[in-house]
């Protein structure tokens, strides 16, 4: 299935604003993060486990357990600092 990934703030600067990739059916948000880390380089550094990275699925905050679906919009970003 195809999903869109969006990055914001410091992650956007390092990884680009967005990309579309194919993933296996049944992939969770956490498994997707691990796949991106496995690319190495900037993805491994920016998304490393232990770093404060928040995520959203279809524009709602979501955690690693969230199952992805075809056409999903996933986003990774640093802790938010508005207000």
């Amino acid at each position: 299935m195809r999903i869109q990934i969006r990055y914001f703030a410091s992650l956007r600067e390092a990884l680009g604003a967005q990309e579309t990739i194919g993933v296996d059916a049944g992939t969770t948000l956490g498994a997707l993060r691990d796949q991106l880390i496995a690319r190495g380089g900037e993805h491994a550094r920016c998304l490393a486990r232990g770093r404060a990275v928040r995520s959203a699925l279809d524009q709602v905050m979501a955690d690693d357990t969230a199952p992805l679906h075809d056409g999903a919009e996933v986003a990774f970003f640093p802790p938010v600092t508005g207000g």
Binding site: F8, A9, A52, A56, M61, F77, V80, T81, G82, G83
Partner: peptide, 26 residues
């Protein structure tokens, strides 16, 4: 609403300081 917004609304601040630009830490 302000307490909620500060930690759950997707905004990010980047400050320009004399030492350069930096993202604000939560």
């Amino acid at each position: 609403l302000m307490d909620y917004l500060k930690t759950q609304a997707p905004f990010w601040k980047k400050e320009t300081t004399p030492d350069g630009a930096r993202w604000v830490d939560a």
